[in-house]
Simulated scan of single mutants.
Amino acid sequence: MISLDDIFVAREKMRGMIHQTPLDFSKTFSSLANNEVYLKLENLQKTGSFKVRGSFNKMISLKMGELNKGVIAASAGNHAQGVAFSSSLLGIPCTIVMPKGAPLSKIQATRRYGAEVELHGTVFDEALDYALELKEQTGAAFVHPFDDQYVIAGQGTVGLEILEQLPDVEAVVCPVGGGGLIAGLAMAIKEQKPDVKVYGVEALACPSMKQSLQAKKALSIDSMPTMADGIAVKKPGELTFKMVQKYVDEVFCVDEMEIARTMLMVLERNKLLVEGSGASSLASLLYHKIPIVNKKTIAVISGGNVDVSFISRIIERGMVEAGRFVHLSLSLKDKPGELEKLLGIITTLEANVLNLSLEHIGEKIFPGYALLNLSVETKDHNHVEHIIQELTKKGYEIQK
């Protein structure tokens, strides 16, 4: 088990190499969460996530003899970039094993830091097993993504910063995957201020820490796909599990829609790009998963590495959920002027047509008619319903 002193030592070793990330108060999110909400912006950390803290601390703690053959790591993305970045600073070779489904942006970023990337398995745990095989074959030093005392101590520096930036904090909410971040953070906070509540948040699709706590042992669970790929770990670490048992008050879960909506809200309100795992902590507050009210609360935004193609899907889905974007299909007489007439009605209703297409042949298309598909920008759910009602009154048969 690590000590608080190990975390202070880690901070001194990393001073000048790792950012002290901002703590940002949000009036909007405070109102929505019924708490005084601050965001600890680890998405603004070097490499785009907190992971570089632990990987750098681990690697500068190794002896040169251990580094001669380079380092190996397994990661779904953020740990990969942290290890690759640290390797480039130290001038040592680096191999990263990533799951085949890892976001392309994270694979490319890892390679840009100079690492050799091998894709293996469909989930993190399979990539981890293969990385351990490579370690045995090559003799390279292995940098575990979470279950390592130096990695945990490095992540714990987030907790030291939190207490310095908001000394009267009452609750801290942190994403949980393998448990490295929350284990180190919780120790740093609880050892100094035991009254501060520390809560973990997992994706409902992969609640390995929550189920392990219920079983009182680290379990390997079955999981579902999740946009919070950074915390999709099927089994927590043995060391991190023990520390979470000791220091963390409770672990909660958020679902995919709650994560997606939160990602969009942070992008809109705070102009910050946050990945699914990073948004999970704030999502738990916005959707009132944690039973706290009127507390000075920090949500750790753990990372911001999002694939560009995925951003567009999040934005579109979020707009649909907010009633600001709707797809409509309707049957239209295949005659000159009919399309212009319909578009005139929609314009009068103060909606904006973004895309349209006409199909003239199909199983459900009658002779003399066409199927019109519309993508329409709207104001809210009431506006959507008003458009549908008005078009229905005028004889159009609408399908959402």
Rank of each mutant, 00 (worst) to 15 (best):
S375Q: 10
K394T: 06
Q137F: 12
N35Y: 02
I361K: 01
Y130A: 03
L219Q: 10
Q20I: 03
P93M: 13
Q214C: 14
L128D: 10
V293G: 00
I107F: 09
K210Q: 15
K235Y: 00
E268W: 01
K296I: 14
A33M: 07
S302D: 01
N294S: 09
Y199S: 00
L32H: 04
L41M: 14
E340M: 11
S302N: 00
D229F: 10
A183I: 00
T347L: 04
A33Q: 04
D195I: 04
A171H: 08
M224V: 14
R313H: 10
D24A: 00
V172Q: 03
V308S: 06
K193R: 05
A279T: 01
G344P: 07
D380R: 08
R313T: 10
V233S: 05
M209L: 10
S31Y: 09
K364F: 13
Q137I: 12
V117G: 05
G101W: 02
E170A: 01
E36N: 15
L134W: 09
E12H: 04
D148C: 02
I365D: 10
T110I: 13
M243K: 05
Q108W: 10
E42C: 02
S281L: 13
L343T: 15
F146R: 06
A109N: 13
T47H: 09
L339T: 00
L354F: 13
L181K: 03
A80I: 15
N35R: 04
